[in-house]
Amino acid sequence: MAQASFLPLEGLQQEEQHQRHNRQIVPRKESLPPATDCFPTGVPVLDQLLQGGIPRGKMVEIAGDICSGKTSLTFNILAQATGQEELVAYIDTFNTLDPRYLEKSGVDLSRVLWIRCNPEKNNPLDTALKALDILVQAGGFGVILLDIASLPFFKRAPIHRISPHSWFRAQRALKGSHTALLILSSHKATGSAAFWALSIQKEGSRWIPPHSGQRTANYFQGMKCIAQLIRGRNHGCVEVYCRL
C-alpha cells in the first residue's frame, strides 16, 4: 500500500504562492487566418508584424490622433484590396473623404462604395453604425471601412459613447465571411472586439528648406509615423513614411 505524502500547511501555502507567481497569462487562442486570407497593408515590415496583413473575417482598428498618418495607411490598404478586384465600402461618418487622394493612393474608385453620413442633418455616428450593420449583413465586400476619426472641430462626436455591443455584433457577423472590417478612429474605440489594433503617431515632418533669401519653406514633402501594434498576438512598432 502506497503511503500518502503529506506536506506541512506552510509548505502547501508556499507551493500555491509559487505556482500563482509563475503562472503566465496566456491569451485566448484565436485562430489566425492563413496569409492568403489577408490583405497586405502595402508596408512590408508592417505585414510582417501583422503576420500577413489585414485578415479577412476580422475587425482591425487603426487609431491615431490628427495628422498621424492613419488615413494614408488606410488608403493604402484599400488600394491593395481594390488591386485584388475586391469591392470596398467606405462609411464616411463626418464627410471628410477626398476621393482625389484616394485615387492618388492607387485605389480603383469604380470599386469603391462611398456612404456619406451627412453630419449636418442627423446623428452621424448612429447612421454610420446602421450603415455598417447593413453592409456587414449584406456580405460580398472585400473591405468595409468605418471612418469615425473625427476632426477636432466636431466636438459633438462622442466616439466613446458607442456601445461595445455594436462592435461585438459586427465581429460576430463577420465570422466566417471574407470581409475585413477596418475601423479608423481618433483613439481606440473597439476595446477587445478588434483582432488587431494599431496605434499610429506622427514622429516628424519633412519640409524642403527654402532657397536663400526666401522666408518660407519650399514645400511640404511628407512625414514619418510610428505604427504600434497595441492589440494582437505580437507586439512591436514599425516606421511608416508618408509622402505628399
Partner: peptide
Amino acid sequence: AGRKAPLQLSLRRLR
C-alpha cells in the same frame, strides 16, 4: 521587405 517605401500622404477634407 526591408525597404521603406513611402505611402501617399492623404488629406482629410473639411466640408
